Computed example of a mutant assay.
Amino acid sequence: MTILLIDDDEDDRKLFFEATAEYDDTIKYVAAADAREALLYLNNAANVLPDFIFLDLRMPGLSGEQCLIEIKKDPRLAAIPVIIYTTSRDEKESVRLKGLGAAHFMSKPVLPDDVYYMVSFVLGEKWS
């Protein structure tokens, strides 16, 4: 399994990586510090496409929402579950982003154990 995490916060990326490794140490982890870097990775045919994308919303430059739109309009990428992983707790924003194709909307946990449980919940689901 491969996960792409798109997040501009290095500490959040590190915490997320530690939680995924605790959940399953065979997971391959790819990180992008912003949406443009992620789209370059995803559009490079030499790279393995991830099984899941965790996407922060609030990033400089291209926003997470714009990145989600780009991912979902590409037929090669559209079926990859995109989980919005953000500090936002705005319910209206969650509904709007799910309408754009996001599989889940999750507020970033503060505690490492909470990140672990969030990751295990998402990765433990049955995906079609």
Rank of each mutant, 00 (worst) to 15 (best):
A103P: 11
V95R: 05
S94K: 10
I71K: 02
I83T: 09
I83A: 11
I84M: 15
K72Y: 09
P81G: 10
A103W: 07
P75M: 09
E93T: 13
K92M: 14
E91M: 13
S107D: 09
K73L: 05
L100T: 05
V82N: 02
D74M: 00
A102D: 01
K72Q: 04
A102V: 00
P81V: 08
T86W: 11
A103N: 07
E70A: 15
D74I: 03
L97Y: 00
I69G: 01
K92I: 12
I71R: 10
E70F: 04
K72H: 04
A79R: 09
P75C: 04
A102K: 05
F105A: 07
A78K: 03
L100H: 11
I84F: 12
D90E: 11
S88F: 07
I83D: 06
K98F: 02
F105I: 04
E91Y: 12
A78S: 12
A102Y: 04
I83G: 03
P75A: 15
S94N: 13
A79L: 15
K73G: 02
E70K: 01
Y85V: 00
G99K: 06
T86G: 13
A79Q: 13
E70H: 09
Y85L: 09
S88K: 14
R96S: 14
V82M: 08
E70G: 00
E70M: 04
L100M: 13
I69D: 14
A103V: 12
P81F: 02
R89P: 04
E91R: 04
V95I: 15
E70S: 04
S107K: 08
T87W: 13
I84Q: 09
I71T: 07
